[in-house]
Amino acid sequence: MPIENIPEIYFQNKNTPQDIFVYDFKMTSDVVKSKVNLSMNMFSFLQVGKKQVHFADTSMAVNSKQSLLLKKGNWLWTELLDTEAIYYCKLFFFSEKKLIDFLSKYTNNIKPHKEEVPYFVIENDQYIAAFIDSLSSNTYTNHSYSDALLSLKFEEIMLYLLNKYGDKFEFYLHSLISKEVSPFKNIVESNVYSNLKLEEIAFLCNMSLSTFKRYFAHEYSEPPGKWLQDKRLQRAKELLQKGELKASDIYLDIGYNNLSNFSIAFKNKFGTSPTDISN
Rank of each mutant, 00 (worst) to 15 (best):
E115W: 05
V181H: 13
E238C: 13
P118M: 04
F94G: 02
D101V: 07
M1T: 01
Q52E: 11
D249C: 12
V36K: 10
A236P: 06
V48W: 15
I157V: 08
F43L: 11
P17H: 11
L152P: 05
S278T: 09
S29E: 09
E244K: 15
P183D: 06
N268V: 04
A265D: 09
Y127P: 03
S39M: 10
Y172P: 01
S34T: 00
E123D: 13
F131M: 01
E238L: 15
F43Y: 14
S175N: 06
D30F: 10
L228T: 07
K26P: 02
R214T: 03
E170Y: 04
L198M: 12
F203E: 14
K97Y: 02
L152F: 13
I6T: 05
S208E: 03
F43M: 12
M40C: 08
N163L: 11
S194Q: 03
D249M: 10
K111S: 08
F43P: 04
K242E: 10
A247P: 06
G73W: 12
S95V: 01
E156G: 00
A129I: 08
E79R: 15
L209R: 13
F93E: 02
F184R: 03
H54C: 12
Y256P: 05
K179Y: 11
V121K: 15
F171L: 07
D249W: 15
A129D: 13
I100K: 13
L173K: 07
S151A: 06
T16S: 12
P223Y: 05
N191P: 01
